[in-house]
Design a protein around this nucleic acid. Structure first.
Length: 472
RNA sequence: GGGGGCGUAGGUCAGUGGUAGACCGGCAGACUUUUAAUCUGCGCGCCGGGAGUUCGAUCCUCCCCGCCCCUACCA
């Protein structure tokens, strides 16, 4: 029966373009222009010898205006189900009641919708159905398609922004022998021919910095990374990361780049820099606030912290702030935990949280004037960490020492501690110039721009448990 | 992984210890300017699954499954 459907349609016009082009067409008037449009019938109003169908396609919606008097196979047209794909040809007109329409002379059924798209007013509310059957969700809930489109535009605008500044886009391996560049548990897979286990990358970092060693002075990758961790409204096991590295730059340059990038993308995607997140306004135009972690903690808790304090004092301060403490933690980890538990949840931003303890930042370079700290920041926007950046550690000996310290943590049971990547140290031995690096969670950025509260809204096919039972 | 909530028709939801309803969709019909069109008719359902309590369970109890939220790790 499939051969009864056409293989091809010569579509000559789209709803969005027609709505714009004929915005001045008067009610009751014809345009004299004959077009062929195609899309899905999503609403149907039939009145005897007249019928009005709301056809929806990618660029917008358009009314099909049919009548027994001028439409081929009118009786058949009236029998279309909501969701059927059609192509229709006829004059562009505006009806008496002011709706831009194609006055259908001829039409074709392109595909039948054997399943319906849910409630035409409420859409599909069940999140499981929405995420598993995104193809249905996109029709039932226009917000879903908008969020995905926003994401696409954001990625595109990001690429143009970086290319405009001379960055080169590259692709680095997903399979890695030593997963590095972040502290996270990896997914493991196995290569049969080589008979070895491989890890799916948890970050892009180490390969991109190798490329800087190789001479790519401005390099970036937008790529999928994989972390074997829990799911939440803000976490998906596979997610998209933008990482960029710029030779001769430091973390101050990365702050400037971050705020300009986000503001640029916001303008390109939403038309402005004032965003609405969960009903709360957010201005992302530069300059963003810059504050050190310790100052922010002091501001939010009235507790002054210092890495020079005796460990016992830091522990007792943590306990007084109701921050749970674990035995092996050093002062740096304690400070970070105190920040994350007491202060970060209250930040809205945009704010650059600067100067992290060295102890928790094995890939970042020592702060040029604050012992025990590194030149690292995380941008917090709309209360969420948007990324992570630093003046990159360039010294191979120090890098090796940091890896070895991580190895000790791993032996002590920290499954997220980094492995020693010998080849990366070797690359540093060839010489990494001063370099600024920045990572941005692309999904988080898309959430920001689309006003989404859940990461699954901006991932077309989010990770889900295997569908239970037979598909019905 | 721990704590809480939810699961009724294709969709959105209501409801009761006596095996079930509304609206939308679908099907059949009326209607020449509709905008979630309207009007008439039709229920299309193992009330998530299993066990128990009961004369009787969709409703009460327990277990399981699934989803959501909070929490933990993180971007």
């Amino acid at each position: 029966m499939d051969e009864s459907y056409p293989y091809r349609v010569e579509v000559t016009a789209h709803a969005g373009e027609l709505q714009e082009r004929f915005s001045a067409l008067l009610a009751g008037a014809g345009s004299g222009e004959v077009v062929t449009v195609a899309g899905r019938v999503m609403l149907r109003r039939e009145m005897g010898k007249l019928a009005f169908l709301t056809m929806v396609e990618w660029t917008g919606s358009l009314q099909l205006f049919a009548a027994a008097q001028w439409t081929d196979r009118f009786a058949e047209l009236k029998k279309l189900s909501l969701g059927d794909w059609v192509a229709a040809s006829g004059e562009v007109v505006r009806t008496k009641t002011g709706e831009l329409s194609v006055r259908v002379a001829s039409w074709e059924l392109l595909a039948k919708a054997r399943r319906s798209f849910g409630d035409k007013w409420h859409g599909i509310a069940d999140t499981d159905t929405r995420y598993r059957q995104r193809y249905a969700d996109m029709w039932a809930n226009p917000r879903s398609r908008e969020a995905l489109l926003t994401r696409s535009r954001a990625v595109s605008a990001t690429r143009r922004f970086l290319e405009g500044r001379g960055f080169v886009e590259v692709e680095t391996p997903v399979f890695q022998v030593v997963p590095g560049g972040a502290t996270a548990r990896p997914f493991v897979t196995h290569h049969n021919a080589l008979d070895m286990d491989l890890y799916l990358r948890i970050a892009l970092e180490l390969h991109l910095k190798r490329l800087v060693v190789g001479g790519m002075e401005k390099v970036f990758e937008i790529g999928r990374v994989f972390r074997n961790e829990g799911l939440s409204p803000r976490h998906n096991p596979e997610f998209t990361m933008l990482e960029l590295y710029q030779a001769y730059a430091d973390y101050h340059d990365m702050m400037a780049l971050t705020e300009e990038l986000v503001a640029h993308v916001a303008r390109e995607v939403t038309g402005g820099t004032r965003l609405d997140c969960a009903g709360r306004a957010l201005e992302v135009a530069p300059p963003w606030e810059r504050a050190t972690m310790l100052d922010l903690v002091a501001e939010h808790t009235n507790v002054e912290l210092s890495l020079d304090m005796p460990l016992g004092e830091l522990r007792s301060k943590a306990k007084s702030l109701e921050v749970p403490v674990e035995e092996p933690w050093g002062p740096g980890k304690l400070v970070l935990e105190i920040y994350e538990k007491t202060t970060e949840p209250h930040l809205w931003g945009p704010v650059f949280v600067m100067d992290y303890p060295k102890e928790v930042s094995p890939l970042a370079r020592d702060h040029r004037s604050k012992p025990g700290f590194v030149e690292r920041f995380e941008p917090v926007v709309a209360g969420r960490e948007l990324g992570n950046a630093f003046s990159e550690l360039t010294d191979p000996d120090e890098q090796r020492a940091n890896f070895e310290a991580q190895a000790k943590l791993r032996v002590a049971g920290d499954e997220e501690a980094m492995d020693l990547d010998e080849d990366y140290v070797r690359a540093l031995e060839y010489g990494l110039p001063p370099t600024g690096g920045l990572g941005i969670g692309v999904d988080r950025l898309a959430m920001l721009l689309s006003g989404s509260e859940a990461i699954r809204e901006v991932i077309a096919f989010p990770s889900l448990r295997k569908e239970a039972g037979p598909i019905s």
